[in-house]
Amino acid sequence: MARSSSHDVRDRLLEAGVQTFSKSGFNGCSVQDITDAAGVPKGSFYNHFESKEALAAAALEHYWVSGTCDQLGILTCASLSPRQRLRRYFEVATSDIAKINFTCGCLVGNMAAELSDHSPVIAAKLSDIFRGWSRQVGACIRDAQAAGEIESTADPDQLGIFVLNAWEGAVLRARIEKTERPLRQFVETLFTSLLH
């Protein structure tokens, strides 16, 4: 039986971390659960990560940059106008959340709700991710303003932050109520009242 390379083991732990944290939350799983999901011995975990918290920070980064959040590509899709891209982004995200019966949001939102008060390491990583995410939404709004698709002349970066904050609140409410109604209300309000 061939031995896994150190890089392969780390990648498997990252993937298992993303999946396990998404399903069970940070506090709902153990290092053993993660190593079992990765199919590696528990002892190998500490060759790659000093703690479960360190893995969680790395898993967030991996989730964000590995294409797991590939919906973000919609925001730069050249075949749609900027306003259409923005609307399509939130409609696809709504559909994806409905497909999993509102049982969880994305790992970023889940970790924010669970750990931002308890882990400065995770809070710092989440802050970086939210900053970048808001910038991407704001850039799409800026493009829509430049194209004359959005009348608002408000700072697009501030609008991007506000829109993302409102979206995360709608996702949380949809998870509580187990319905897409809060997400549909968000999209409708966004495009009929704020970004018209």
Rank of each mutant, 00 (worst) to 15 (best):
V163D: 01
G43A: 12
N27D: 14
A154D: 13
V108I: 13
E61L: 07
Q71G: 15
R88G: 12
T103K: 15
F130D: 08
E50C: 10
E114K: 05
C104E: 13
T153E: 12
K178D: 01
C140D: 02
I97V: 08
D36E: 11
Q84I: 06
S22D: 07
D36W: 02
S5A: 12
N110V: 13
A2L: 13
G43N: 13
P182T: 01
F162V: 14
D155F: 07
L86Y: 04
I97E: 03
S22R: 07
Q136C: 01
T189N: 10
E177G: 03
A37D: 05
Q19P: 03
V65R: 11
E168W: 00
T103R: 15
I176T: 05
R85V: 09
S30D: 01
G169A: 07
E149F: 06
F21Y: 07
E180P: 15
N165F: 10
G25Y: 01
F90H: 10
F21I: 01
D117V: 05
A144Q: 05
T68V: 11
L107A: 07
R173Q: 13
A154K: 10
S30Q: 05
D155P: 00
L190C: 02
L60K: 01
V31F: 01
E151R: 15
N110T: 14
L195I: 04
K99Q: 14
F26A: 00
A112I: 05
K52R: 06
E177S: 10
V31R: 05
C140F: 02
I34C: 06
S30H: 04
F130P: 00
F102T: 02
G138N: 02
A54Y: 11
L159D: 00
T68N: 15
D128H: 09
A2K: 14
C29Q: 08
D155L: 08
S152E: 05
E180W: 02
I74Y: 01
I129R: 03
M1T: 10
D128Q: 11
V92N: 11
G25T: 02
A124N: 09
V40A: 08
C104L: 13
A56V: 10
P82H: 08
L115P: 01
D70C: 08
W64T: 06
R173E: 12
S95R: 12
S4E: 15
Q84T: 11
R10N: 08
A123Q: 08
A174T: 05
A174Y: 00
L75H: 02
I129Y: 03
E151L: 14
L115E: 02
A37P: 00
I34P: 13
Q145F: 03
Q145G: 02
T35E: 01
E50V: 15
A98H: 09
F191C: 04
G169H: 04
T153F: 04
L126S: 11
S30K: 07
F130W: 06
V108F: 04
H62M: 14
T103H: 14
D11L: 15
A124K: 07
V187H: 00
K52H: 04
A123R: 12
T20F: 00
S134C: 09
S5D: 11
F191P: 03
D155Q: 11
A59W: 04
T76R: 13
N27E: 11
Q136K: 12
P156R: 03
A93S: 13
Y63Q: 03
A56G: 09
D157A: 09
T103F: 12
S134N: 11
R142G: 06
P156Q: 03
R181M: 10
R3I: 11
L72S: 06
I141C: 03
